[in-house]
């Protein structure tokens, strides 16, 4: 038996929004640690990994590890039936083929129960080693979204150059070139507005904007985004979900022909 309850459906709705354009089917792995999901996009270029920790839930019961194979479109459609303020309960039997989604209004006057058919999915899991990165940039997530969107008007790729104290995002295309420089904040009152740049060694890598724009669908989950970059390894774009977990995206750099 698996059953968990979140005080607000909003966070799970936003999590589904962050995933649905990138992956069509996925497996939620349920264990005593919480819910987790890892999936490559259909072209196997990028990877998304989600962790929702037990401590962030109102209640969490998992008698036995289970894998819930879901169609992301379907789950997102059902999640949209919840109001943001509703509390949400997810429930599934150990060998069941259904996931129950129960939405309860804050005043307790309305309870909606949906049952979603689960899928038997065999999804390849990749082993992601823990590693140190050459550079870690933290910046307002809305700013990063804006940069990716704006540079998409110029080219298909963004070149990210990190040096001490700042980052250059640049793009080249048939119509012209663009360069956006973001400087590390010197003094910020609100942590969400801060830009921090940690540099162990400067890096200069190129990434496909198409995927970065998919990743920025997670923007409503967190005021800040972190970009972890090292030469010749995938970029990690991470959004922390307060008190609950994270959504992390991995994207291989483009390599010069």
């Amino acid at each position: 038996m698996f059953e968990c309850r979140l005080p607000k459906a909003e966070v799970l709705k936003k999590t589904m929004d962050a995933l649905k354009d990138l992956i069509k089917e996925a497996v939620w792995d349920v264990s005593a640690q919480g819910l987790s999901l890892q999936s490559m996009d259909s072209s196997h270029v990028s990877l998304v990994q989600v962790t929702l920790r037990t401590e962030g839930f109102d209640t969490f019961r998992c008698d036995k590890n289970i894998a819930l194979g879901v169609n992301m479109d379907t789950m997102q459609k059902l999640m949209k039936c919840a109001s943001n303020d509703d509390n949400i309960t997810l429930k599934s039997e150990d060998n069941g083929d259904l996931l129950s989604l129960i939405f309860e209004s804050p005043n307790g006057e309305k309870t909606s129960e949906y049952e979603m058919k689960l899928m038997d999915l065999d999804i390849e899991q990749l082993g992601i080693p823990d590693q140190e990165y050459s550079c870690t940039i933290k910046m307002p997530s809305g700013e990063f979204q804006r940069i990716c969107r704006d540079l998409s008007n110029i080219g298909e790729s963004v070149n990210i150059t990190v040096v001490k104290g700042g980052v250059d995002f640049s793009a080249k295309g048939d119509i012209g070139n663009a360069k956006i420089h973001v400087t590390e904040s010197s003094n910020v009152d609100n942590e969400k507005d801060a830009v921090t740049v940690e540099v162990n060694e400067p890096v200069n890598l190129t990434f496909a904007l198409r995927y970065l724009n998919f990743f920025t669908k997670a923007t409503p989950l967190s005021g800040q985004v972190s970009l972890s970059i090292s030469p010749d390894v995938p970029l990690v774009v991470a959004y922390e979900i307060e008190d609950l977990g994270h959504v992390k995206y991995f994207l291989a750099p483009k390599i010069e022909n």
Partner: peptide, 14 residues
């Protein structure tokens, strides 16, 4: 020109 490499190249399939 630049090439987009897949994520599998970097991480092992478990």
């Amino acid at each position: 020109d630049s090439w987009q490499v897949g994520i599998i190249i970097y991480y092992l399939i478990l």
